[in-house]
């Protein structure tokens, strides 16, 4: 994947976005705020069908990666749609950059990647980005440069002339992300960003999200892939049945204060070592629960194999000469 910086806007362009829509915000300032935000779906006759979101109070600060977690139907996507003005709240209100969610002017500073890549499939990648660039009223030269940079960033240089109907789901997700970044947004809203991506694509997406944060951008994402959220998010909100169940920093929420982890190198696993360790732990009032080699994650293994394969192309796994499987 090309290691290209996410922000490419020429001097002045970024500034003009901000000046047209509001003040320049500092890291830590509130970017998104919801107060008593509630959404009730009703049937044709106005009867209550489902409370999709119930009195959500939330604030997202500039420069953080905020994750919305929850099972299907918990209200994650509803929250995002309310913030984007795709749905109207039943009660309560939501502001983004200090503007009401229904005000389209706030969108100048937002990039949105929907769950599925809802793009026009008769357009190719270049045309797609050009179209969305025009919606931001970007000048032609800026549009062209930005499109080329983003196509390179998402690794679709060789497929830029193919129409999106020929793209795989992962490729569509990549071009979807490119369109979300066309305006060099300050707030990036990602709905299930790793959906449809292969492990390498998932890793790339997570790195990119972190890169966005490093550039001072704010990311709001929702996902039900817990490992993804844990890897990238600074803070999370857990929703269930439309109610906010938990809110806080990921590191604090997942910290297990009742247990202590000890890691060491250059040691061999022996009974003596285990016995010594047990006595030390017991001396301090604890109890040794497990003893052994740590395991790496499948993601790390996969990443390592792919990196090695790139460095040394060719078949890596070979059966033994007698036909047995070589381990």
């Amino acid at each position: 994947m090309a290691e290209t910086a996410v922000s490419h806007s020429p001097a002045g362009h970024h500034q003009s976005h901000r000046s047209s829509t509001g003040d320049i915000l500092k890291v830590g300032d509130t970017l998104v705020e919801t107060r008593n935000l509630t959404k009730v779906y009703r049937d044709f006759w106005g009867r209550k069908k489902k409370v999709a979101l119930n009195a959500l109070d939330l604030s997202i600060k500039k420069g953080e990666i905020f994750g919305l977690l929850g099972p299907n139907g918990s209200g994650k996507t509803t929250t995002i749609k309310l913030l984007l003005g795709l749905l109207f709240p039943t009660t309560g209100d939501a502001t983004v950059f200090g503007r009401p969610a229904a005000d389209v002017r706030k969108n100048e500073r937002i990039g949105y990647l929907p769950e599925e890549s809802y793009l026009y499939r008769f357009l190719n990648a270049e045309e797609t980005l050009d179209f969305y660039g025009r919606l931001f009223d970007m000048p032609s030269d800026v549009r062209k440069k930005r499109s080329a940079d983003l196509i390179r960033l998402v690794g679709l240089e060789h497929d830029r002339k193919r129409t999106l109907r020929e793209y795989s789901k992962g490729m569509r997700q990549r071009i979807g992300l490119a369109q979300a970044l066309i305006n060099d947004p300050e707030l990036v809203i990602l709905d299930e960003p790793t959906s449809g991506l292969d492990p390498i694509g998932t890793i790339w997406m997570k790195d990119l999200i972190k890169q966005l944060r490093d550039q001072g951008k704010t990311v709001l994402m929702c996902s039900h892939r817990l490992d993804d959220v844990q890897d990238v998010c600074d803070r999370i909100a857990i929703l269930f049945n439309g109610d906010l169940q938990e809110l806080g920093e990921v590191s604090k929420l997942v910290e297990d204060a009742a247990r202590v982890e000890i890691r060491a190198t250059n040691l061999r696993l022996t009974d003596d070592l285990q016995s010594d360790l047990r006595s030390v732990v017991e001396k301090h009032g604890g109890k040794l629960e497990s003893f052994g080699h740590p395991t790496t994650t499948l993601e790390d293994l996969f990443r390592r194999i792919v990196e090695e394969s790139k460095a040394r192309p060719g078949r890596r796994y070979l059966p033994a000469a007698d036909g047995t499987i070589k381990s």
Partner: peptide, 15 residues
Amino acid sequence: KSLTIHTIVTKPVER
């Protein structure tokens, strides 16, 4: 129906 409108109205486009 195809939800392509989501990527349009979330830009600074008046409906």
